[in-house]
Amino acid sequence: MLIRRIKHGFWWTALAAALAVALSQAWLWAGIAGQNRLIGQLLAGRDVAVEDFANADPALRLARAVYLRKAGRYDDALATLNLLLQQAPPALRAQARYNLGNLYLTQAQEKLKAGGVDSATPLVGLAKQAYREALAADPGFWDAKYNLEVAMRLLPEMDRINSGNQEDDGSQKSELWTSLPGFPRGLP
């Protein structure tokens, strides 16, 4: 009656396996729900403890960068976003680049308001670069299109281009670099 015993044991094993899978999935669910709660907390404007970031999902880091920019902690936001750009899945990377562009552009606007045109110029350039990369990753990213246009109009002399006249390109490139006098020292 070995077959019967094996069959009997099989049913018990299957039950144990099903329960183990259920337990592990419940554990995962609890983890995801916890991360979602933290994301909601960050977006509502309350910081979370650093130890929660030990093995945090990239989405949580992105939420923290949004929070940090809102709180005016630009350097921390920049560090978070730069780390995120190395780790994030492609879907989040476009968002991270766009938020990075917003970070640069906000700082540039603040510098412009304070009268520091020289230090604002490289920041606008960086913002443009970030928006372009976001759009290269996701051409249908409307917010990135809008803000790229804002950034491009902030430095209108850079956009003086004759539509695709190739013989102009060389001179335009030199104009681009002469219009960025503060580039080396303005980097954040």
Partner: peptide, 16 residues
């Protein structure tokens, strides 16, 4: 703050 900008994009909540 100056010219109107589109706000940051918050991440979508993780799917369960």
């Amino acid at each position: 703050d100056g010219e109107y900008l589109r706000p940051d994009q918050p991440p979508a909540l993780l799917s369960t």
